[in-house]
Design a protein around this nucleic acid. Sequence first.
DNA 1: ATGAATATGAAACATTTGTTTCATTTATGG
DNA 2: CCATAAATGAAACAAATGTTTCATATTCAT
Lengths: 216, 216
Amino acid sequence: MKVRYKKSEEIRERLLDTAELLFAQRGFFGVSIRDITDAAGVRSASINYHFDSKQNLFMEVVDRRVEPLAEARLIALADVDLENPNREEVVLGIVRAFIEPMIHYAINGGAGWKNYCTLIAHLGVQKFWTDNTVSSKYDSHAIKFIEVLKILFPDASDHSIHCCFQFLLSATLYTVCDNRRMDTLSNGVYKSKDLRKIEKPLYKFVVNGIMGTVRV
Amino acid sequence: MKVRYKKSEEIRERLLDTAELLFAQRGFFGVSIRDITDAAGVRSASINYHFDSKQNLFMEVVDRRVEPLAEARLIALADVDLENPNREEVVLGIVRAFIEPMIHYAINGGAGWKNYCTLIAHLGVQKFWTDNTVSSKYDSHAIKFIEVLKILFPDASDHSIHCCFQFLLSATLYTVCDNRRMDTLSNGVYKSKDLRKIEKPLYKFVVNGIMGTVRV
DNA sequence: ATGAATATGAAACATTTGTTTCATTTATGG
DNA sequence: CCATAAATGAAACAAATGTTTCATATTCAT
C-alpha cells in the first residue's frame, strides 16, 4: 500500500487548486500541464507522477467537491416540510435546497469553490457530461429533487417537471459562472459577481416559473 | 482590391461550416487547424490563407450568424403589442420574440445553425464574451429587450429586470446547447434534442418567472 | 541514525501545434 | 487564348504539447 508523505500531499492539493483555477478560466484544452505546474511552482513531471495524466487530474478536480455539494443539498432537502399545505413555500424550500448550497459555497467557500462552480457551469453546457462519469455523480442526487417535485405535483406531467428542473439548473449554473454578462448589459451598474444580490430574484423567478409550469 | 474566385468561396464556406461543427463539439482549444482541414478535405495551410489565423476563423464563425439572429428577434419584438392591457400576454410576446428565433433556427436552420446555437451556449458561460467583440454584437440587441421590460414594468427595480433577462437567457442557451442532460436524468424518456417539446414549457416557465419577479 | 519507500529535478521523448514559404496549378477578365 | 491574379500542394518551421526516464534528494517508521 502506497503511503503518501505529508509534504507531498500539500503539493497534490496545490496542483488541484491551481488546475481548478485554470480549468475554470480556459477549459480543459485551453490549459497545458506546464501552465499548471508553472503556476504552482513545481516541475511539469509532477502532474504525471501525482495524477498519472492530465485527464485524470481534471477528473480529480471535478470529483473533489461533488460529494460535499450533493450532501449539502440533500441535507437541506430533507429539512423541507413537504406536508406544508402552502405549496409555494414547499417549492421555495426545494428550490433553495438545491441552489443555496452552490451559491453559498461560491460566496463563502473560498477561491477554490468559486472556481469550481465556474468549472461546473462550463461542463453543464457540454456533452462532456454524459460521456464521462461526471454526469452520473451529479445525476444521482439531482434525480432526488425531480422525484420530490413529482410527488408534490402528481397531476403535472413528468415532462414538465423535468423541464422545470432543467430551467432551475440552467439559471443556477449561469448565475455562478461569473461571465460578467450582466456587467456589460447594465453598463457596469450590476455585477454578475454580486451573487448575494442575485440570489433572491433567482429564487423568486424559479419558484414562480415552477408554480406556473406545473399548473394543470 | 482582392477578388475571390467562386470555387474558392465554396471552400471558405466549407471551412466555416466544418469549424462551426468542431468548435461547437470541443471548443476553440479542443480543435486544431488540422482537425478542421482534414474534416473539410483541404490542406492545412488554407485556413491561414483564407482566414489569416485560427482565432480569426473562430470570430468569423461567430459573426456569420449574429446579424440574422438579432434581426429576427428585433422584428418579432416590433410585432409585440405593448399597449395590450393583458400584461402576461405582452410578456409572452417579448419572451417569444427573444427565444423563438433561436429555437427555430436550431430546429429548422440546418446543421449549421444547430451547431452555432451550441457554440453560442458555450460562449455564454465564459468570460470570453466580454474579452471579445462577441459580447458587444449580442449586447446591442439584448439591451433592447431589457429596455422594453423596463417600460412594461416601471415599478420594478432595474436590477430585478436585469436578473429576469439573465434567467431567460440562461434557460434558452441551456436548452439549445444539446448537452443530453435531460436524457440521462429521465433515463432516456425525454431528450434534450427534442426542442419542439421543450419550447412551450420554456415560455411558460420564463413568463411566470418574470411576472412573479417584477411584481412589487 | 539508518534504510527502504517516496518524491523531485532535469532532461529527453515523439507528437502535435499554428504558421510560413514558395513553386505549381487554377480561375477569370480581357 | 493569354496574361495576371488567386488558390493550392507540399514541405518546413519553431514552439508547445503530454508523457517517460532515471539519477538524485527527501521523507519517515523503525
